[in-house]
């Protein structure tokens, strides 16, 4: 659906050249929610802005459904842009227009008749759940409602792709969840391809199918969300994954009680495993005791992922047998400390 080939963008400032996007190649499939995560300044915004040519690439190519966006100009670029919706962190609504008029704006640009516009606006208002607020002005709406207007506006011309640049970063956690639920809903209902940028790992975890991690303009890691969560390869990715999988503290900060016997083990498990009673099986099948120290399970679009710290007490042999059993069950078991 969307192909990026060797895409680079350098900004020339008075004193230096900033390479905001550095030789990025990615392939995004039709109908997927593709996340791009990175810290501020990683080049994420520049990357999405290259997708609708709000920035002109220094080198490389972007193609959407086989059409080379990077080489479009004038009217053909404007037509292509009408098929790419964009949602912004700060909503970017016209304050002089009501909700309905804001949503109608892209339809006016596409020169639709007033009748067609009114019909489409009503559909969109219903889709994003803003019934009854059509005649309000943006200044009378909450952040979440403003973003719903932003999403409705982005969907007005039935785009093939929706670009979201930090769409939830200005919202509180609860509103973030409702906007993410709306995006998932739209993705399923309309089969829309969504490219989503964020610096928050829980956004990726909640709605993305695949993720790319950006650092200094480069994509350092890329893959299905679950795989990246389970086996992060790069330092940067590990840092992001730790944001949500590790309980409050880092493993190294867990206070190991010297008095206690047995081994402290970190278990990492995936998908349906999180819902299986493997702990009680271990206790029943082997001559060991298990204390749970701390743990956390996270839901993603394609299953759950979790990390659990336990202390196993028993003979050395029994502990080894129990750990072998867990590993057979495809649960990663890493011994942190032996008594």
């Amino acid at each position: 659906m969307i192909q990026l080939k060797g895409l680079s963008k350098a900004f020339q400032t008075k004193t230096q050249t900033v390479t905001a996007v550095d030789n990025v190649s990615l392939s995004i499939d039709e109908g997927e929610i593709f996340g791009i995560i990175g810290y501020s300044g990683a080049g994420k915004s520049t990357l999405v802005r290259l997708l609708n040519k709000l920035e002109t690439a220094t080198s490389g190519e972007v193609t959407i459904e086989g059409e080379s966006i990077t080489s479009l100009k004038g009217q053909s670029l404007r037509s292509a842009r009408q098929e790419i919706g964009m949602v912004f962190q700060h909503f970017n609504l016209l304050w002089s227009r009501t909700v309905a008029e804001n949503i109608a704006f892209p339809l006016e640009i596409a020169k639709q008749s007033k009748q067609e516009r009114n019909k489409r606006v009503q559909e969109l208002v219903n889709l994003v759940g803003l019934e009854g607020r059509e005649d309000s002005y943006p200044s009378q709406l909450s952040g979440g409602q403003k973003q719903r207007v932003g999403i409705a506006r982005a969907l007005a011309n039935n785009p093939k792709v929706l670009l979201c640049d930090e769409a939830t970063s200005a919202l509180d956690p609860k509103t973030t969840d409702s906007i993410l639920a709306l995006l998932t809903d739209i993705n399923k209902k309309l089969g829309l391809t969504i490219v989503l940028i964020t610096h928050e790992m829980h956004v990726i975890r909640k709605i993305c199918h695949r993720v790319a991690v950006m650092e200094n303009g480069r994509v350092v890691e890329e893959g299905p969300v679950l795989q990246v969560f389970r086996k992060p390869q790069e330092h940067m990715t590990k840092e992001f994954v730790r944001q949500i999988t590790e309980p409050e503290e880092d493993a190294s900060e867990i206070v190991f009680n010297e008095e206690e016997t047995g081994a402290v083990v970190q278990l990492k498990f995936l998908e349906n495993k999180a819902e299986q009673p493997f702990i009680s099986k271990v206790i029943r099948q082997f001559d060991v005791d298990v204390n749970i120290i701390q743990g956390k399970i996270s839901q993603t679009q394609r299953g759950s992922y979790g990390s659990l710290f336990i202390r196993i007490k028993g003979s050395h042999e029994e502990i080894e047998k129990a750990l072998d059993y867990l590993r057979e069950e495809e649960i990663e078991a890493e011994v942190m400390e032996h008594a």
Partner: peptide
């Protein structure tokens, strides 16, 4: 400026 950018992204002349 964000509103102008949003309009450009929508394909406005």
């Amino acid at each position: 400026k964000g509103v102008i950018e949003a309009s450009q992204a929508m394909g406005a002349t």
